[in-house]
Design a protein around this nucleic acid. Structure first.
Lengths: 237, 237
DNA sequence: AAGATACCTTGATCTGCATCATATGAATTG
DNA sequence: CAATTCATATGATGCAGATCAAGGTATCTT
């Protein structure tokens, strides 16, 4: 895990046009590419820890990262998942406060780190960057508030269907027989955390959906024989 | 309720220096003062409704506003309270999405409205404004995430003590006998919503604290005979 | 391939809070 | 100052999900 630091340019980064850096010109991109470091992470590795100061921001190029918060008495909550094209840790950096969450790698990932001085100088050079961060912060706030609201008003079954549908809409496909299918490369324990429930409760909810014919599961693959029933149940959130 | 629109300048606004407009120069302040409208609101009035488009942003000059979200099936959650010196509705305006919450007046309030075109032109004139909004969005995000986390990891008793302590730290005082006291100008029902519980559950939690000698209550006045026991219990959140 | 280890499922039981029902007190109105 | 309405309190019951316990199934190790 020592020499996995990589250098490649940002200009041709496949996920840059979903990040704060999408508006950068050639000169700025060169600065960014020069200043950033990039490395691969394996599942279980920590990108940064809750409670630490941010020395810059991290850009996820590919993979899946979990933002986790743990209380003094050891209770752990998976606050959100972040995939390629997402900047993380920007809130703590920009507000000079400590990280609220740890960023934990869930699947093999490539993540860049952009040191604070570079972020600051790009921010003051190009007002577009600040705008992008503002839009990002508002979107995160919207998502957090919606998650919060859902947790207070919906049961585990609903939250589970919602999570599955959300990921299906992003990564799902039709298999060879036309069945709507989703690969979710995370453990049951992690899926349980995503709906803020215990693994036992998740297991029972999955079985209930299976028994009703809404779901078939095979390890990390989930199929939905009756997608309409699911969207009907989830509609209007 | 018809002619309660007031005009006064922003330069001498008592709460301006906690808002996004604290960095404005004299010329910009004149623009702001000219473009804004100001009016008083009574408890129960709605400043804007969930689901509507934002035509600008609202600045609370004084009073107390509740941000409330309601689900299709009628479940209501009080997401946060906002007091004087807070700008609300900016997220929906800046991201051109509909309001997530309704803004509901809880105590008599003075609220200004700044139309969108004015906000936009101030934003593009003065990069400081965008920075302030960014800091505000990050702070809101931090608060929402912390509330969310607390709801998932703490019981009603803890959340109640936390809310009381928070407001005590802002508005509390020692009464004539030296007793730590707080006036909370909201209904039990609203306090219940603040800890995301039913009024019955709140009532029982208050009684429990009373029976333990941590609290005495008289209508909307709460006193804390043993503040140390409370801070000890809440410490480290 | 056997053993060890982590992961997942299922059943039994417990519990915090919601809900329902009703009573009491406080505020508003005729 | 009755009468009505609204706010709060308290008791009884119900339920979703947590927790505890045990067995089953992958996956990794050697």
């Amino acid at each position: 895990m020592s020499d996995c630091t990589i250098k490649h340019d940002c200009k041709n980064c496949t996920t840059r046009n979903t990040t704060e850096w999408r508006d950068l010109g050639a000169k700025e991109l060169a600065i960014l590419a020069k200043a950033k470091t990039s490395r691969t992470f394996e599942p279980g590795e920590i990108i940064f820890n809750q409670g630490t100061q941010a020395k810059g921001v991290h850009c996820i190029q590919s993979g899946l990262i979990g933002m986790r918060r743990i209380s003094e008495d050891g209770k752990s909550v998976l606050i959100r998942l972040c995939a390629g094209g997402t900047t993380v840790g920007y809130g703590a950096f920009l507000s000079k406060t400590q990280q609220l969450n740890s960023a934990e790698v869930l699947t093999p990932s490539v993540v860049c780190f952009i040191q604070g001085s570079t972020v600051s100088s790009l921010l003051s050079d190009n007002p577009k960057i600040g705008e992008r961060f503002l839009q990002h912060a508002i979107a995160d706030q919207t998502k957090t508030e919606t998650d919060h609201f859902m947790n207070l008003t919906k049961n585990v079954r609903f939250k589970l269907l919602h999570v599955l549908l959300t990921y299906y809409e992003r990564d799902g496909y039709q298999d060879s027989t036309g069945l709507s299918t989703l690969e979710l490369p995370i453990l049951r324990r992690e899926l349980a955390e995503l709906v803020n429930a215990q693994p036992e409760t998740l297991s029972r909810a999955l079985r209930e959906l299976q028994d009703e014919g809404l779901l078939t599961q095979d390890s990390k693959q989930f199929s939905f024989p009756d997608m309409k029933a699911i969207t009907d149940e989830i509609r209007a959130f």
